[in-house]
Design a binder for these strands. Sequence first.
DNA 1: CTACGGATTTTCT
DNA 2: GAAAATCCGTAGT
Length: 214
Amino acid sequence: MEKLQKNFYNINSLELAKKLLGKYIIHEYDDHKLSARIVETEAYMGPYDKAAHSYNNRRTERNEVMYGEAGFAYVYFIYGMYFCMNVVANTKEVPEAVLIRALEPVEGEEIMASNRFKKELDELSKRQRINLTNGPGKLCMAMKIDRSLNGGDLCGNTLYIAGEMYQNRIKNISEEDIVSAKRINIDYAEEAADYPWRFYIKDNKYVSKMEKRQ
DNA sequence: CTACGGATTTTCT
DNA sequence: GAAAATCCGTAGT
């Protein structure tokens, strides 16, 4: 089934953020199987990245997972209401991660509609349909990703990631299909706020925020 | 389509 | 005690 193996993740978060585009996140729970394609990511480069939770090697109970091995989930609670999912990158003691910012639903879209809006899929407005998974907090609601999955092994059998060949889909992402842009909502990060460390698949309708056309 | 303010509570200082 | 890797409803263009 082409689940990604540990060595896939053991690179820096900038490279991993790009490599994760087009891969599939799968969550199995309660007889449900939800899957979705990754279409937008952001790299957080650790000690020298003012936007990262691990800036200056800050190490707390919350971000402890970032200091562990690559290929595990870092799920944190934000703004009093939401969760964000990250993929831990790089080797032990190098605290880097990739924030998953948007997904395109593949399997279990009915369940996602229920998780997000407590409605049937065909009852959703056009806007709600796009809003299922087009943001880091939204996709966690849709995929039922919460605190309990923090520290989970992404090579395990609950929350895991598969390659482009998943379900015999073959849609490799080429360099030209990747857009890079400034990261979102990190105004506090000074010069790091301008680094182009956000990546998304060009023209994908689930991307949370498009850049202005040139 | 974009812009703004309010929601809500964990986490860190 | 303040800030936070966000979202939503409403109002305006």
